[in-house]
Every structure is written in structure tokens, then in C-alpha cells.
Design a protein around this nucleic acid. Sequence first.
DNA 1: TAACCCATTTTGGTATGACAATACAGGATA
DNA 2: TATCCTGTATTGTCATACCAAAATGGGTTA
Lengths: 237, 237
Amino acid sequence: MTKDAVKQRKRSADKLIASFEGMIRDGVLAEGDALPSEREIVQEYGVSRTVAREAVLALSSKGLIEARPGFRPIVKQPGFDTAITVVSSVVEQILQQPGAVRSLFEIRIMMEASLVRTAAEDASREDIAALKEALAQNEEEIENSEAFYVTDMAFHGILYQIPDNPLLLALHKAYTDWLSPQWSNMPRLPKRNQANFEAHNRIFEAILMRDADEAERHLRAHLASAWDQVRATFKEL
Amino acid sequence: MTKDAVKQRKRSADKLIASFEGMIRDGVLAEGDALPSEREIVQEYGVSRTVAREAVLALSSKGLIEARPGFRPIVKQPGFDTAITVVSSVVEQILQQPGAVRSLFEIRIMMEASLVRTAAEDASREDIAALKEALAQNEEEIENSEAFYVTDMAFHGILYQIPDNPLLLALHKAYTDWLSPQWSNMPRLPKRNQANFEAHNRIFEAILMRDADEAERHLRAHLASAWDQVRATFKEL
DNA sequence: TAACCCATTTTGGTATGACAATACAGGATA
DNA sequence: TATCCTGTATTGTCATACCAAAATGGGTTA
């Protein structure tokens, strides 16, 4: 009884939120449509503007609408990239805690280990070409650490594109967004760039040879080395 | 300029939010502490209650505080499980879209492929024992599909525990929370349970033999089979 | 005719005051 | 001493008002 009473003691905005969620899911509100204005919601649902506003804010924080100040909220069909955006602020908070970066990086290593195996086994001619191209761009920018970092990310990004899975693309962006700041204090030297390029090259060669074990071995070594660099930087702090 | 002006045109609640985020991150507000009441926030920061309330709601939706009606909001140090909770509602929305479940399931397969390889290479005596125990419970419940499903999840869960990474535990919970509903329409028969048990057994044997390739092969076959089941169910709908 | 400019309206952001429902603490009472 | 009750604090909701920015529409101008 008491429990039920507590449950019933919901915010009335939740009804609105659920209602709009349903309309977005069922396509009644399509991508790009504008939400009713706050005052219209007030009239339609018979609630105060406080509640209407609260619902809109909640939908915004869930990534189901785009609500920039001054603009009318616009319905957005959420994709995996939306989900990443929604967690971003929390994840960045979590990564401030000791050990959290390590945990995330380990997951990335596991994922990429699977990815290189997949690449070694399934990569198409086009995939190989894309990897080769990314590798060439690595080599070009060895002397320019800023630019090299971009091409470094891009090379890994190719791996995420091979399986043709939109969630993978979102995850790659998430990894780079969340982990890059952790790397920002790390000194970037052409020598390191050269080593990373060579590591990429070894991975690429293994993929060419369709040797999944070898590809995974080189990738793990590559990422482990990157981690050692970061950890060394942390110790200096 | 215009852009900056637009950026500057932010909600004043954002300042409050950032302030509280900082205090939580730096431990000024520790886990379990109560947030100031809305009216106290009004006085301290010189904002209206509307803004104070908005900030509290935002923190709540980010999972940084627990705000039950009538109670003072309680600070919560976010973990990876918190992050999962935050995205849950969006992800469930996303999974309603065609193809999304497939994308997520593929990621799970990739992850577990890495996990079984890790298990085959690194599993400790205790890990092996845990797998064996989980396997035994599988066998016990073959006739009881409801219970079998639980032990099925538990067996896979052991794989997520082996690397001792808190993010993995959160991910396992996420996968089960998000994908289970998709399985709910699937007919569960003792015959299927028997097949799944045998698949688990093959994986376990391969781990015992420290044969990563074989373990991965059996796992992929196991999960691919599970996917076929689900897809067949969808076609019936 | 087409592009531009300006005043009006709409809209979101904020402030303020009020009331109901609930949680909590401390005093009154058996 | 234990229990009940009542006052207070707190959140949830409502109503209203004002402001600044953005959308809008109409008229003007090249």
C-alpha cells in the first residue's frame, strides 16, 4: 500500500514525458517536427507552465529534442550517437575518479582486438585500401604531432567502419572524445609518432596476411604501449 | 562573435549545474550528503526558485543526485552503472527502430568474443570453478525455461567478471536489461535450453583447453544461433 | 519583381508569490 | 516510557508577470 502510494506520487511531468516519448517512437512526431510551444502544451494538457517546461527539459536531456535557447524545440529521432551525447557529461565526471580511465581503456582494447580480428578475416578490398590510405597519412604527419594525432585516430577509425555497424561509429567517437583529454598532457614527439606509425604498419601487414592472431598481438602491444605513455605522464603530475 | 553571443546566451541554471558537478567531483559534496534545499540555493546563488529547481532536475537526470519527492536530494558519486541507468531510456527508445537491436547484439558478440579469448588465456582456477558451477546450474534448469534463462545470463555474466573491470559488469547488466525484452516473445523450449547448455559446455571445454580460437568459434556459433531464433520470432510477428 | 528592412507577435528564460501534500522532528499525552 | 499529534520544512504544482531574443509578416525600396 505504502509503496503503491509512493509510486503514485509521481511528478505529473512524467505523464507528459511518456506521452511525447510515445509520439516520437510511433512517428506521430517525426524528425524535424517542432514541439508545441510551452504555452500550447499548457492548454492541451491542462498543466501549469512549470510542468510543461519540466517535461521539455527532460526530453531535451534525454536527447529526444533539440532545444536551443530561443528556438522552438525540434524533435530528433535518437540514434546511438544521441545516446553517447546523453551519457557524455556523466562519463566525463566518472573519468575523474581514479581507475576509471583504465577501465574504459581496457574496454577499448578488447573491442579493437575484436575489430582487428574481424578486419583480418573479413576486410574487403576497399577496406584494405582505406587502411592503406590512412597509414600513408600517418606517415606524412610524423613530424607534426598535432596532425599526427588526428591521423592516428583516423586509422583506428577505419577499423570501426569495417563491420558497417552504426553503433561502432558512435563508440569510436565516444572513445576519442572521452579519452583524448586524458592524453592531452602527454608530450607528443616525432619519435613517438614514428613508433606509432610502425605499430600501425605491423597491424596493417598482419591484416593483409589475413593473420588474425598476429594482428591482435600487434594491436594489443600498440595500445598497451600507449597506455604506458599515459601512465608515465600521470606519475609526473 | 555571433556564435559566442549565442553560446553566452545560456541558461543561468547551467552555472549552478557546473558548480554542483564540480563540488561532487572534488568531494566537497560527498556521497550521501544532502543537497541544499531549493530555497537555500535561491539565497546562496541569488537566483529564482525556477532556476534552482531546474538545476536540481538536471543533476537528477544526470544521475548525480537521487531526488525523491518530499526528500532532500542526496548526492551520489556516479559509477559506470549510473551511466548505464542514464542512457537506458534513450537506448530503449532507439531499440524500437529497425536494425538497432541487431547493431547492439553484434557489439555484444564482439565483446564476448574478446571475453572468451581472455578467459581461455587468463582464467584463474577460481574463474574456471565459477564457470563450472554456472554450467551445472544451467543443466539443472533445462526443463524449467524461466529459470534456465536466468542461469543462461549468469553463465555469460561470469565471462564479464573475469577481467575484474567494473565497466564490464555494468555492460553485462546493460546488455541483459536492453536485450532481454527482445527475447521475450521467443518461445523457450527445453530442447532449445538443452542446445544452449551444450553450447555453453563446448565453450567451457575450449576455455579449459586454453584454446582461444576454439572458444571464440563456439561462442560466435552460440550467439549467432540465438540471433537466428530471435529473427525467426520477428518474422512471425 | 525581388530583395531588404522594420515593427509586431511569439517564444523561451526568469522572477515571484501562493497553496497542497508529504516528511520530519519535537513536544504533548496516555 | 512509548505513542500520538502537531507544527515546520520541503518538494510539487499552479498562476502571473516581465524581459530579451527570435520568428513573422508587411511594407518599402532598388
